[in-house]
Amino acid sequence: MTSLPPPTPKKLGLVIDLDTCVGCQACATSCKEWNTQGYSAPLTDTNPYSADPTGVWLNRVHGYEVKEPGQEHSRIVNFPRSCLHCEEPACVTVCPTGASYKRAEDGIVLVNPETCIGCKLCSWACPYGAREYDQSHGVMKKCTLCVDRIYNENFEPEDRLPACVKACPTGARHFGDLGDATSEVSLLVAERGGYDLLPQMGYKPVNKYLPPRARRDATNTRAEALPKPDGSAFDRLFQWADKVLSPKNASARANEIDNSGKLEG
């Protein structure tokens, strides 16, 4: 049934912290590893050992460069991108077969690989590029929010998390119920100003992104971090040593802070 269920009270999803993500790709690789054997498996690769390997991945980590006004250097923001399990996902309503559906009990958006005809229309309807077509199986693949882990009673309770969340070494990925205003993830979103991707599209994503924190000016902090001479006996000893050891023409600059980053020749 591709008509949407009534608004689900439970909205399971991810909160992704763009401040702490280091772009290590652990979430992407652990997603690939889990989901190539789980629901809707495998996640096929084509030419995996040749010069041009391609494959189906449910999670991709982009890198963006942000040039902030007044800052000399750009900052890099690592940006994991996967299905946002939207509240109003057009990828579901456009599906002609009912293979694409949103679960009434927890809001997870899934594809039934047994009934998908591989028309690809759902991938056209997604603004976030979350769906990838599996050429070798002729069906669409997407993030399942590890539906086969989070309710899996064969796992210890602490392992009942999406593989990406479990793998993240910096704790940049959080999983929980965003429909519950008192849940840890909802409080985190409220505290850090979590936001929706492309709210203009009207899909009402459940997943939220936490913005990078404000940054100190790197050009100033570097100068401040260096110790200043205080005229003590130790300082004078080191200044003398520096003078003796430095080439003659460089001695005049021995106590200056060099911000150029160049090595003296």
Binding site: L18, G23, A28, D52, P53, T54, V56, W57, R60, V61, H62, G63, Y64, E65, V66, K67, E68, P69, Q71, S74, R75, I76, V77, F79, R81, S123, E132, Y133, Q135, Y195, D196, L197, Y209, P211, P212
Partner: peptide, 21 residues
């Protein structure tokens, strides 16, 4: 990306080495 409020956003690195679907 929702990062436009910080400053001008540009592409730094793609997530994969070969074009995907």
């Amino acid at each position: 990306t929702g990062l436009g409020g910080l400053g001008k956003v540009g592409q730094w690195e793609l997530p994969h080495s070969v074009p995907n679907y």
